[in-house]
Design a protein around this nucleic acid. Sequence first.
DNA 1: ATATAGTTTGACAGTAACTGCCAAAAATAC
DNA 2: GTATTTTTGGCAGTTACTGTCAAACTATAT
Lengths: 225, 225
Amino acid sequence: MARSIETSQLTVARAAAALFLQRGLAATSGADIAEAAGISERTVWRYFHNKESCVAPLFAKSWKYYAEELRRWPHFQSIEAHLAECFDLAKQPPEWIADGLLIVRLIATLPDEPDLRPVWLASYHRGEDELAAIIGDRLGRSHGDFDVRLCAAAVLAAIRVIDETISIAAIRYAQEFTTAEVVAQTAKSIRAVSHLPFCDPVEPRPFGGSGPMLSPDAERAGRTE
Amino acid sequence: MARSIETSQLTVARAAAALFLQRGLAATSGADIAEAAGISERTVWRYFHNKESCVAPLFAKSWKYYAEELRRWPHFQSIEAHLAECFDLAKQPPEWIADGLLIVRLIATLPDEPDLRPVWLASYHRGEDELAAIIGDRLGRSHGDFDVRLCAAAVLAAIRVIDETISIAAIRYAQEFTTAEVVAQTAKSIRAVSHLPFCDPVEPRPFGGSGPMLSPDAERAGRTE
DNA sequence: ATATAGTTTGACAGTAACTGCCAAAAATAC
DNA sequence: GTATTTTTGGCAGTTACTGTCAAACTATAT
């Protein structure tokens, strides 16, 4: 049974992250990463088109964690209730802990490794469509609706800021957070930037959607894929 | 009298943008950019540490335009009033028109040039501190305050989404917008994602700031510089 | 105008990042 | 098992990018 390609890429990402953290991005070569990951350099460049994006799968994992939980979010539940339920660290697979630490440490080094930040931002950005779909679904609106996309972008930015704030506080200032604190802060921040009422329980409704804010053309245009 | 270095970099950016738009990022070499910009390749690499970021000055200009106007924003004025005043296209220097078109066209190609998107995102990201300062100033709060930073990130995301939506609508769907439409939509979107009341007139107040949401350490930690 | 100091640039050589190509290996289907 | 497709490694070649140094340019002083 073969490992999926995502798993292989994640292996490379972990190796790359460890090296970047240890000796810095500039001092790490493609050959180093390949060796640490136990594959040929050729395959590294097949997986990623540049050195920095080798860690992208880890960053993506940070968001995918949220995405998966949000997709399961029942319509009748508030965001606070749902997050409290699924953010139980004890429920996470053990490998998550190690990856989580790697991610947090990477985020904390962003100020020192400016070339890593675009990768971080782009990883999060890829979640916008997905989040728009989730929000749209909850509100019975299209994911192409301008307001829905606006909301998704703002919420994703909020989650990103929280990730950054907490990671830096944890690594650089050795601060510790309880799960409850993180959940409360996350929910509060998401609510703060949301102008659509998707955080509260909604009754399931047939797909409908309200009028677009920009013209329909502009709406279609807004989708990135 | 020497041209400032920013001007030189902008020249390179314009040349690079034209080439990227014409034949694509992959088909454009560093030597091509250098030649088109009328400087040596060595200088191109001194200005930018990779090919993609050659267009960053143009992207940055897109945000700086907002930033400058917002810094001038008088405390007693609402955001609608202020934006309406300064978004008068006739008031812009003529070179702005050409650059603006270049920027809009670049944004419209982002779906086809995925390697340009990180540059776009990072350019906007660099405005977060600046915007936090503006918002903080209006509210008499510190720019390090978590809520202020959260608000800045959300507002910047909103402006970015508007830029993307309008650019794609204009280029791919040949839609046209009046200044008034753009201003109204921008102000409305900024308000939508803002949970702090900086959009309305505020009375000038001595620097004070309310209590932090996270602990002071976490607040300091959040700043990226 | 000339000297001096500081900054920016180009030339060129070298290294590291990255691609194309093809054959070996591995997975999958039958 | 064989046939087919997908994934991988090896290696050669190209392009992106850096280090170094001398020439050119700017600025300020006199």
